[in-house]
Every structure is written in C-alpha cells, then in structure tokens.
Nucleic acid binder design. Structure first.
Lengths: 190, 190, 190, 190
DNA sequence: GATGAATGAGTGTTCATTCAT
DNA sequence: CATGAATGAACACTCATTCAT
C-alpha cells in the first residue's frame, strides 16, 4: 500500500461518498466504486488494505474535515455565547454545503462499521468544543450535564434537520439557522 | 392444505431486527436471516415478496409499535406540559426497552430503503402529537416553528442518547430522563 | 393420479402450450403453468406424475390431434395425387389454425425431452400415410426412396414456412399452399 | 495484468454446444457450462455479459462458420445447377461433420432466445445464395417463388434428414446425398 | 380431489480479493 | 504503480416436488 498519486486517492474518496449516498452501503461494491473513480478494482488495494479500511478512512477524513470547518475562526476571547454561535454557523454551513459527506458519515455511524473506528481518537478533533462546554458549565452559563447531552441537544438536531431522508416534506433554509440556534441555546443554557 | 403460521412471521421479524443490529444492513443476507429465524430461505418468499419488502414491513411494524407505545394513556385533558411529559416518558421507556427495534429503525432510515416507504402514511400514526404541538403553538406555550424543528429538538436527542453507536463512553440511565426532558422542554417552550 | 375433472386437464394442456410458446421451455415452471391454468401447483401432480410427464403427454396429445386433422376425409379410392393433395390441405390448415400447438411440438422435438417418447408408437397414428407412400412407390408414381426422405421434402417445408421463428420477414398465406404443394409434389414424384 | 485467453473463449463455446446437445437448452445452466469448460462460473461473466449473450454469440458463431463452409469454392462461372450442387455438397458435408453445431442452431432457433438475434444481419452471410436464386429465377431455371420457399424445400429437408431427433430409425449416409439433391432440385427447378 | 405452505437444491449473477503482467 | 483477468464464495431468488389439511 504505497501512496503516490493523490488524485487517485481523492477520486476514490469522492466516488465512495457519491456511491454510498446514491445506492447505499449494501450495494456499493468495490467494482462499482472503482468504476465511479475511474480506476481498476485492483488499484483500490494499492491504496487500501481492503474495502473496510477504505470505508473507514473515508469516514475519518470526513470527520476531520468537518472538525476543521467547525473550528475555523475559533476565537476564545469572545463571549461564550458568541463563540458558540460561530461554531453553530460553521456547523450549519458545513452540513448544508457538504450534505453528501454528512449523509455518508450518518450512514456509517449507523452501521456496524462504526465499531472499527477509534472514537476516542476521533473526539480529539473536537477537544476545543469540549473545553468550551466545560468552561461554560463552570461559568454557570451552560447546564451542568454530561457532554453527550449537550451534543445531543445542540448539534444533533441541526444535522437531523439537514437530512432529507429523516425530515420529509421540509427543506432546511438559510433563514432557519437562527431559529435552530435559539432552540439549541435554550436547551443547553442554564 | 397447511395454513400460514404467525409464529414464523414473528420469528422472521425478530431475526431480521437482531441480525441487522448485529452485523448491519449490508451484511444481512436472506440466507442468514432465514437461518436466524429457523426457517428455509425459500420460506421467506412465502411470507414476503422479496427481501426489500421484508425489511420495509419490519420497519413499518416497528414504527407502528413505537407510536402505540408513545401514545398510550394519552389524556388530552391534562395541562399541555403534562401531556408532553407523558409522551416523553413513554418514548424514553420504549427506546430504552426496545433499543434493538429503535436501532433497526434508525439504520433503515439512513439507508436507501427509506425511499420505499410512504412516509405520509406513516406519519398518520403520530397525528395526535402533531395536533398537540399545533395546540401548544396556538396557546403560545410552544415556539411558533415548523413541526420538524419541534421533533428534531424534542424527540431525536433522546434517541441519540439511547444509541450506544452514536454516544460513546456513556450509557443512558433512568435518572437522566428528567434532565433530558428539561432540556427538550427548554428548547421548544416559548 | 386419478382423473376426474376433464376441464382442469384441458386447462393444463392449453396453459402449457401457451406458456411454452410465450417464454420457452426453460422458463416454463410448474408454478407458472399452474397459475396460467388457474389451479394450484400441487394439482398438477394429481393429474401427472411430474413435470416431464406433463410435457410429454401434451406433445402426444398434439401429435394425435394433428394426425386426426390430417387424415380426416381420407378417401383411398381417389387417385393418389388427389389423396395426397387432400392430406396437404389438411396439414396446411392444421398448422395455420393451430400454430401454437405446432410450435410447441417443434420445440419439444428439438429438445432432449424428445427421447422420452416412444416414437414408433406415435408413428402408428400416421400409418395410412406410410401405406399411401408405399403404394405410390409400387405404382411408380412416387420416387423409390426411404420414407424419411418423403416426409422431409413433402411435409417439413410447409411447417417450416409456417413458423415465424424460422422464416423471418415472411408470412405464409392461404394462396401459398398451391405453390408449396406443387414444389413438394415435384420433389417426390417420379 | 493477465490477458484474455482465446482458449477459454473457445472452450466455453464447445462446452455450450456439447451441453445443450446433451441435456437441452432448459437444463444447461451457467454452472454446468462452466464445469464442462473447466472454468469458474464467474469467468463466464468476464467473457460474456450474461448467459443470454453467451448463447446468442455461440449461435452467431455457428451460423458464420456454416455460411463459410457452404460458400467455400463458390464459382459463379459454372452453370447454375453445378453451383447449386456444390453448395449442396458443402451444406451436406458441414451438417454431417458438425451435427452438434447444427443441432445447437436448430434448438436455438426454436427457442425464445431466437428473438434476440438480428436476423437481417445474419442473412448477410448468405447473400451470394440469395443472388444465385434470383439469378436462377431470372434465367427461368428456378421457379419464380419467394426465397423462403426455395430455402424451405432446398435446404431444410437435408438438415432434417441429418437430425436423429427428428428422423427416427434412420441414419443419413453419404450415398443419400445424391437422392436428396435430386429431390431438392426437382422441387425448385422450373 | 384439491390446495397453499414449505423446502433443499438449484438458478443466474455479483462479490471482495488475488494474481500475472 | 497499475491493471484486467480470474475465481470461490456468496448473493437474491425460483425450482420441482411433498406434505398436512
């Protein structure tokens, strides 16, 4: 597994996401992914140990990209609510503009492949957010609850709203982000 | 002439849920489901047109069961917040006690099979909840937002919290339901 | 295998011929034949030992019907050529009006099922024709060749002409029978 | 990268013909053909899109081979009857020496697969014969009838005579070809 | 007599992966 | 590095037939 041609690696990632979104995990065979990426099935095994490892690495790449997008312009000197709102706007923008990536991650999380990922390692990308929450709790601005509760109420709803598979007869629009943010903030603020 | 056997139908449903939870949608083959249910693969086709129809009908059955559980003891004469809390406790209890079912539904929703379901038809099971929300909005108790926002903030977080796949290093406990309810109510109340 | 209801037997025969012509031997399953005939698959086994025996008995029935049609109005007192022409007109009429039956027989003959039939027994239906040919040879009206040559040149062409599968871009019409008869007679006459 | 192997392609063709002759179209499964050819069932799909395409391409290959054999040494300067006789001898020889191929073609023609073939395209292989017939008609040597009549009376009887499935208790011998040719010529000549 | 449920064995086809080039 | 050929194992599904009713 030597890596020389980054274009092929990238093409494989994009093909994987596109295909899984179009036809689902079950039907996304190595042959189809290869065809979509414009390479031979055998080439996949140059870049990845096997199919599983390809799917996992695509997931991790998306998670990393997502964390970067959310944490960009993170300015710890602003008031906590403003920092929080910036995170939100970033999260919203990423999910809106990269719905395919987000949907791949969602399908992946809800599949047994999820067990193959070192989640503690992944969570490190989001450490600044954890720290911020901890900070907010200590400052008595945010409710003193397990961090999973904060995530569940603050972030999960927006991703849910953005997913057409789950949210039928409704499409999330730009102006809705303010509404969503208010609800999320009401949920977690003390 | 032999007659169709409800036990077999039931065994098939349970086997499907169990297997999909254990090895995922992608790997749950007809042969494996049949083996898990203790019948011949061919027998599945006596009860279902094809694999697709089996998976869909399991999903619908779970959704129906879920709606019944949530709406039991629905008493429209109580104050709105109390009705709401009862729904919550029911939802919490169902998800806690039938985590397998819920996780199956979640995987299903996040798969392309989801497109095969008539979601409008399914939503009818939850009509009383929709009416209750409408009522709350008119009484200025609940925020005047699209119903999908209410669902996203009021119900989905609890299911997320209950799902170990998504909520790592944390297990939802009975005492957490009060916390969760407070956060959900804060999110949606005016 | 008791036979009580002749209607069902008849329905099975017609369904078999119809289906084999429509989708071929390979795809004509017992279940489909049963459905086409409006009976249960199991019912077929009341009337026939197995699928093979059903197909064979349909073939034999057609052959018998065909021989009756060809030999009707057989008048051995006419001049030989006139007897022969009557046989021809009958054969032509049968093939034209029962193309489905004829095509079934043709497919059957060209399949290994053919080996299951006692052909000597079948040929007995056509004994008068054999005798006629023998007669013609002795009278020095017909060429002195093996009877298979006579059949091949006298009868096979007309069935070939009637079969759209074999005769593309051409449809046998009523007026063609005179032409065909002349050619056949030229082939066999001394 | 391995390269496609003509021997395998050839083995597949031979196995297909052999098997279809032995057990018939209906029973000739992909697995059995593969076994007969000494390859994996999956390998068939490297060389052919599907079973259908395999069967069709075998048919076309046989037809092409047959046309080449019949038209070899075609000398348009000889008298028409002599050209015709040469065609006959060639046809007779091909059918005699390649009875398996011929029988495959016959079974194929009498099956619904036949509809998948572009018969006009196929007929091009036999254009010289069509021209010869046209010529004969214009020279008032051959009866002025549709070309299908000529084929039906001139060529099909010999193939029928060569087919043991259709011609019971009789085997076509070398010396019979003169007899057959005379009958065929009598049928079509003016 | 007639049936639909039930099934082991088989269908055509695709799978993830390896191999020779 | 990169490839298409090659495949055993698995896929969803249908088969001819039997069995309990």
């Amino acid at each position: 597994m030597r890596t020389k041609n980054d274009e092929k690696q990238e093409a494989l990632f994009k093909a994987t996401v596109k295909l899984v979104n179009k036809i689902g995990f079950a039907s996304s065979s190595v042959a189809k992914i290869a065809k979509e990426a414009g390479v031979s099935p055998a080439t996949i095994y140059v870049y990845h140990k096997n199919k599983e490892e390809l799917l996992v690495s695509v997931y991790i790449a998306i998670k990393r990209e997502m964390s970067k997008a959310i944490l960009q312009n993170f300015n710890s000197e602003l008031p906590l609510r403003d920092i929080w709102k910036n995170l939100w706007l970033n999260a919203f923008e990423y999910v809106s503009k990269n719905l395919e990536n987000y949907k791949y991650a969602e399908q992946f999380s809800n599949s047994p492949y999820s067990f193959l990922v070192d989640h503690e390692e992944l969570e490190k990308y989001f450490t600044p957010i954890h720290d911020l929450i901890q900070n907010g709790i200590e400052q008595k601005i945010i409710k003193n609850v397990d961090i999973n509760f904060i995530s569940a109420f603050a972030f999960y709803p927006i991703t849910r709203l953005a997913n057409p598979n789950l949210c039928h007869g409704f499409e999330l629009k730009k102006e809705d982000v303010e509404t969503a943010f208010t609800m999320a903030w009401d949920a977690i603020k003390l």
